[in-house]
Each structure stands twice: as structure tokens, then as C-alpha cells.
Amino acid sequence: MGSASGFEYVVRADGSVVITHHGRRATVLRGGRAEKFLEEARTDPQGAMARWTGNYKHGNERTAKQHPRNRG
């Protein structure tokens, strides 16, 4: 599954789900956790993958955007 945010996931034959971020494996979900993720990913796949990998809203997004290094 392609993505603009860099997250992708693949469902394996054994039912496990591999989530990658920019081509690097972020996590592997198995069993009940994989099923729960797939239910959540139906409505908002990018948000679900960000939450399940822990790469979600660190709290410094606004501050970092204003930093001189990050200004266009």
C-alpha cells in the first residue's frame, strides 16, 4: 500500500502485519494485535500506522516548524 506519509503495511500469509516507514521495518504485529490494527486501518491507515509504531505527535511539531533551521 503506497503512502504520502512514508508508512506502508503488508499482511503476510500467516496473518502477521509488517509496518514499514520509508522502506525500513518499524514493527511486526501478530495475532490479536494484527487484527485490531487492521480494523483501525480501514478508516485511517496513515494515522493507525503512526499510532501503532509510536511515531505520532511528539508535542514539538509547532516549535520545530518555527526553528530557524526548518524555515524554508
Results as ranks from 00 to 15, higher is better:
A48D: 12
A41P: 08
K65I: 09
G31Y: 03
A64R: 12
N70M: 12
A26L: 03
A41W: 03
A64C: 10
F37H: 05
D44R: 13
V11R: 11
N60K: 11
A48R: 02
K65H: 10
I19P: 07
Y9A: 06
R71I: 11
E39V: 09
Y9C: 05
K57R: 14
T53K: 06
V17E: 11
T53L: 02
N60R: 15
G47H: 08
W52L: 01
G15H: 02
L38P: 00
G23A: 04
R25I: 01
G32D: 02
H21S: 04
G32Q: 08
V10H: 13
H22N: 07
Q46L: 01
P68S: 07
N55W: 13
D44G: 04
A48H: 09
S16V: 01
H21E: 03
A50H: 08
A13V: 14
S5G: 11
K65A: 13
D14H: 01
Y56S: 13
G6R: 09
S16I: 01
N60C: 13
G54V: 02
S16H: 09
R12Y: 06
G32T: 09
T63F: 15
L38H: 06
R42I: 07
G32I: 03
G31S: 03
G32C: 00
R69K: 09
G23C: 05
A4S: 10
S5H: 12
R42K: 10
G47D: 10
W52P: 03
Q66G: 05
T27F: 05
R24Y: 13
F7G: 06
A41I: 04
E35Q: 07
D44C: 09
G47Q: 12
E61S: 12
G54Q: 11
V28W: 05
G6Q: 09
G59R: 01
V11M: 08
T20A: 07
N70V: 05
